[in-house]
Design a protein around this nucleic acid. Structure first.
Lengths: 204, 204
DNA sequence: TGTAATAAAATACAAATGTATTAAAAAGGA
DNA sequence: TCCTTTTTAATACATTTGTATTTTATTACA
């Protein structure tokens, strides 16, 4: 007497959210109107409305999902070489993967930028922005702990500060690459990240 | 037979542009509709239209003006102590002034963030974004040159890279402060900037 | 197969928005 | 004071946008 529920509602919602991402990356979040989103994911406006009562709900979900995916990836278990320069190199690679060095990650970074900026003037989105920020900070902290493990124990507050330094550096490098994604700029980005890691292994 | 021109047209345009800034900082650039701008600066829609033919023209001018003012401030001639730790401290102060550590600068940073993000998907604004970026990069480079002047000459390319590092760090710290402007966060920001300057004076 | 429930699509509609047009007001010289 | 020009205000209008409403199509189960 009930239970039609043919389509996977959650999958549908994610598909719609991804359409929002596409538009946000290519035209800015403010262009993600219901109709534009419907066109982007080949659905009718009615379908979108069936999955999301209001546009606000849709935008929140779209940001929640992107934050959740980023966090999942940052928290993914990893194996690192046990010691020495191998480990440092591995961590540098890890950090590099967060940078928009190819088209796919550039798109992700553009999505991040548009939602983060929107979050500055939208309290609901602000919560997700802080979540994402915390996750990245934690990720940087883990990296710093790994890097400083090899050398004489340092004050934890110092490591925290260096983690925040790293975190901000990554954000800034990301922005710089979005503004100028030239290959020269990409190379400089790589060198800066590697230098940072190298300095950390040497202790300062 | 001509020349009424009572009001200073340029002043008027700047006043309107500043209204755009206010709205961008408080609600996001997409809320800066003609009517909202008119209300913000107590003018009629007709007056705005007299000064700016289209909304696009207004947004471009508003960004051009903000970029121009930032650049002017960055390029302002300064006197620095001649040598040693005094100079380093002065430069740290200089850098700190670019951070959103009070309400006024936080507002400026929010304006910067909204326009910069809009510039990612608006080619016209993109030009101004790159201008501002170059100016900040140059400013950082000057700071790094001052800091490294005291110690053995370094490769210029290394200094350039450190300048880019500093530049990105400042951008990232700015974003972090916009997301979490707590006083604890502000203190951490100050410590990171000072540590950076100090490390530069020591050479690495 | 038929029927109740659900999903999708189409339509409707009010509010907002950019801009063009028109009317009013203001201002400086003759 | 009057007249021409400019500025400001008011109005009009076509689009766009969010959302509500209505229709149509689909699906699972009896």
């Amino acid at each position: 007497m009930e239970m039609p529920k043919v389509v996977d509602e959650e999958k549908r919602r994610e598909r719609i959210a991804e359409a929002v991402w596409n538009i946000a990356a290519e035209q800015g979040l403010d262009h993600a109107t219901i109709r534009a989103v419907a066109a982007e994911c080949d659905l009718s406006v009615g379908s979108i409305q069936h999955s999301f009562r209001t546009q606000e709900e849709l935008k929140c979900f779209a940001m929640e999902l992107v934050v959740q995916r980023v966090i999942t990836r940052l928290n993914a278990p990893r194996e690192l070489p046990n010691h020495g320069s191998d480990k440092a190199a591995a961590i540098a690679e890890l950090l590099m993967e967060t940078m928009p060095l190819d088209a796919e990650r550039e798109k992700e970074a553009r999505i991040w930028a548009s939602f983060s900026t929107a979050a500055l003037t939208d309290e609901k989105l602000g919560a997700y922005s802080r979540q994402m920020n915390d996750a990245l900070e934690w990720f940087c902290l883990e990296c710093m702990r790994e890097l400083s493990a090899s050398r004489d124990s340092e004050e934890d507050s110092d490591i925290r500060l260096e983690a925040m330094h790293l975190h901000c550096l990554l954000d800034g490098l990301t922005i710089a690459l979005l503004i100028d994604p030239s290959s020269k700029h990409r190379q400089e980005t790589e060198r800066i990240v590697r230098n940072f890691v190298e300095q950390c292994t040497r202790g300062v």
